[in-house]
Design a protein around this nucleic acid. Sequence first.
DNA 1: AATAATACCAACCGCTTTCTT
DNA 2: AAAGAAAGCGGTTGGTATTAT
Length: 311
Amino acid sequence: MEGKREEGIRKGPWKAEEDEVLLNHVKKCGPRDWSSIRSKGLLQRTGKSCRLRWVNKLRPNLKNGCKFSLEEERVVIELQAQFGNKWAKIATHLPGRTDNDVKNFWSSRQKRLARILQTSTAAITPSKSHKNRREISVYHDEVPTLEIPKFSCSSEGESSSQAASCSSPCIGNSDAIQMVPLPDLLDSKLLGFEANPVQQELALPENNLWIESQPLIPFLENPQPQTDLEFSSDTQELLKLDFDMFTSLDAELSKQLDVEPPFLEPVGSCGNVEGEKIDNPITPDCVFDDFPADMFDQIEPLPNGSNPSDD
DNA sequence: AATAATACCAACCGCTTTCTT
DNA sequence: AAAGAAAGCGGTTGGTATTAT
């Protein structure tokens, strides 16, 4: 399989001797001229590979083999919401962490959360009664594609990540409503899902009539089931972290945008039924209670040019 | 104890951006 | 200004370790 055209190029795990050579090179020349390492015959590695090795493993002051602290996790969540998947940028705020570290951390976290949601939603039998529902069985195979209304702020043409950080979904200001797939919102505010190709396809049908084409997640179709969801304490901890971030970001955005009610009431407002106060602390599943069941009745098609997934 | 599932990590690949000539 | 090289970045893959069944 190894192409012969790249003869002499070593790949795979680095040996200690190679590291030593690389370190010596950096001592002499500094962290640059990576290509010269090979051209001088010091190592049979590409400059690219050398640079990566240095950046990710050999650089001084790296926190190798050290798990992300809670504080680091918070920073990542916040900055990811702010910048999107700009791992290098995020990593600059985390001393001793590389973009690869952040990326890997985020990726595992996404998987973990996706699995949690998946198992949770899989346990829920979707109602067949919703008029807009399509028979698409993505629930059990993919991260659920939940939509919530997204209320854009004044600026247009933002990237998805920017839009996410900019949008404060304040119910009541309905003039700029557009739909955003669950992953988009969760990505920036709660869970960090990146819409995968399948979801993107589902989320952005050709005619942009989102609601006609998107599967609705069971939460919206069946108001009860979340009471059946059970999260382990670890999971609760994990989700609470996101949720705290969500609420604090929301508060901050409300402040910045000078809008009144936060999207998420802190406590006791999870139930949408009027007069029904649930005296529960915030739980991840109560997020979904905040989506009115009839919100889909107000959906408008997106204008053709606006693709929220655009970079 | 064996196996499967999951988490974590290191490295590669392809694309984009920046620098140099 | 243009072209090529180098560096940077994000996505993906594959291997190993750990945990659950």
